[in-house]
């Protein structure tokens, strides 16, 4: 490595100790996931009989196939699809709405502009869990139980994202908006042609965060989806647990858990470069 002054550099024993520490940390975190993976590749009796197996068995295709196509209450493939629709809907919906509201707050002068901003900001204090009962009532009255709209709409407004875009828009020089005006761009044209492309790294970073947020929703889908066909995967795992004296089909449950982890990981890995850029640098 280069010898940059100002960079803390460890040599010899210190370097090995650091790596050892990191490796132990990674193993510690990764171990339960490994166990879940092992459990998803063996048979039910092998899991129940101590000691627990620590190496993968030969039931991989069998178990995953069973999970994807039939599952326990509903096929996991369907639950994955439901989760995907919900996560995409929430992420894209949140981004679209926050972009537009931030645009309105920053670039237009209308009465009570500040008030509206603070009202939006105030909703940060009201996460889903706090308003879940009234929200349920509203959604039920709209007849949106067991529907994608019901899963997505209550979660689509976002104060955080609005605030983030507002901060970004405020760093865009006023001269740019004026230049666009002189060029003849109407407000929405300016928004689409200039602001959107300039925000693309921010949008990407936010998409990653919001996708995972949407994917990991548990309480809300649990409340409003009673039909197993509409279950999302994160809550679906819980629904697979046996009640009473039934035996749990652990290999299938574990396969489902592993499958539930894959899409967020793919999104993070796939968009890592954009994500980091969006967090650290503002392109101007």
């Amino acid at each position: 490595m280069s010898d940059h002054t100002g960079m803390v550099e460890k040599r010899g024993v210190g370097l090995w100790l650091t790596h050892l520490g990191l490796i132990i940390g990674v193993l510690f975190i990764f171990f339960p996931i490994w166990l879940a993976f092992v459990a998803s590749t063996v048979t039910q009796p092998e899991i129940v009989r101590p000691p627990m197996p620590l190496l993968p068995g030969d039931q991989f295709f069998e178990n995953y196939g069973r999970a994807l196509t039939s599952g326990i209450n509903a096929p996991v493939a369907l639950m994955l699809f439901n989760s995907l629709v919900m996560a995409m809907g929430i992420a894209l919906g949140k981004i679209a709405i926050s972009l537009l509201s931030a645009f309105a707050i920053v670039y237009f002068r209308f009465p009570l502009r500040k008030t509206f901003f603070w009202l939006i900001f105030l909703t940060l204090m009201l996460p889903v869990e706090v308003r879940i009962v009234p929200t349920y009532e509203v959604i039920a009255n709209f007849g949106m139980l067991n529907s994608y709209q019901g899963l997505i709409l209550p979660l689509v407004a976002s104060a955080t994202a609005t605030f983030l875009f507002r901060q970004f828009f405020m760093t865009v020089p006023d001269e740019l908006a004026e230049a666009a005006r002189v060029d003849g761009a109407k407000p929405m044209r300016f928004f689409v042609d200039i602001l959107l492309p300039m925000s693309r790294t921010n949008i990407a970073a936010l998409f990653v965060i919001l996708f995972i947020y949407g994917w990991n929703q548990y309480l809300w889908p649990l409340l409003i989806t009673t039909d197993p066909e509409m279950n999302t995967i994160v809550m679906g795992i819980k629904q697979m647990f046996p009640s009473g004296d039934d035996t749990a089909d652990w290999p299938v449950i574990m396969a489902t858990s592993i499958l539930a982890m894959v899409p967020p990981v793919l999104v993070v890995v796939g968009m890592q470069r954009l994500f980091v850029r969006g967090l650290v640098e503002s392109e101007k």
Partner: peptide, 26 residues
């Protein structure tokens, strides 16, 4: 009219060509 700004106010994500052409495109 056409205006030249103090900080140039070029659109950062557009090429030089697109910067010049933007007003005409509109």
């Amino acid at each position: 009219i056409a205006m030249v700004f103090q900080n140039y106010a070029l659109y950062p994500h557009m090429s030089v060509f697109d910067n010049m052409a933007y007003g005409l495109k509109i």
